[in-house]
């Protein structure tokens, strides 16, 4: 599938190089030099996703993100490019409604992988997407889950939570961001209820497959180190 993404970044050379790389992978990239131009371009054309730099002169990335989310077509997937090290990554865009983020200097392969994951999530059920981690296999289209080869029955919410966690396997999903990650931030589920649902989910999948990071969130390991244990 051909994909059109918008890069909003003041680094023109990066845009040139990344455009070339992404073109090899069937992704067309359009570049906007600053937030204002980015918002205009986004309004004018159809884009499947936005790559948004946090550190930009003038309107910074977080402000642009707010404007994208507030505007028409605000649900476009946004991947933030954060400058790490100094203060810039203090607010991780997740809380502000970014779909994912990578820290500069990033590996383009990783960026592409994250971009594809974000796009898959935006268009669920396309072409039998399968997610795997920690011995769990999720067939997103059929909404079926198997653990170590055995089918497991999950409720709708549990399934969405699991998808959110497994898409980010190996990374901690903040408790506060889990509901929106799962596409369930429509206030039908209270934040407090998350723990209850996650613990039910954990019971069904096995303790080691969902770990609680106290005070932060939850993480599904990519692999189980010793499956026998």
């Amino acid at each position: 599938m051909s994909v059109r993404v918008l890069l909003i970044d003041d680094d023109a050379r990066l845009a040139e190089l990344l455009g070339e790389y992404l073109a090899q992978h069937d992704v067309t990239m359009v570049h906007a030099r600053d937030g204002g131009a980015g918002l205009r371009t986004l309004g004018a054309g159809a884009f499947d996703a936005v790559l948004l730099d946090v550190m930009m002169p003038g309107v910074d990335g977080l402000e642009v993100l707010r404007k994208i989310r507030a505007g028409a077509g605000g649900r476009v997937p946004v991947l933030m490019l954060t400058a790490r090290g100094d203060e810039a990554d203090r607010v991780v865009g997740l809380e502000l409604g970014a779909d994912d983020y990578v820290a500069k200097p990033f590996s383009s392969r990783e960026l592409l992988a994250r971009l594809r994951a974000v796009l898959r999530r935006a268009a669920p059920g396309v072409a039998g997407e399968r997610l795997t981690a920690a011995g769990i296999v999720v067939d997103v289209g059929a909404r079926e889950v198997t653990v170590a080869g055995e089918a497991v029955e999950l409720t709708g919410l549990e399934f969405d939570l699991l998808c959110a966690l497994i898409r980010r396997a190996g990374r901690v999903v903040p408790r506060t961001a889990l509901l929106s990650e799962a596409g369930r931030d429509d206030a039908t589920v209270g934040e407090r209820a998350i723990d209850v649902h996650v613990s039910k989910l954990r019971k069904k999948l096995g303790d080691r497959r969902i770990r609680t990071v106290r005070g932060v969130g939850y993480v599904v390991p990519k692999d189980l180190k010793d499956p026998a244990a």
Partner: peptide, 21 residues
């Protein structure tokens, strides 16, 4: 200066992935 050094490093990483492909 650190920020400026990181910028070409970022370019290099993209170039490396392109070279890989």
């Amino acid at each position: 200066v650190s920020h400026e050094i990181r910028t070409p490093l970022g370019h290099l990483r993209v170039l490396l992935d392109t070279a890989r492909d």
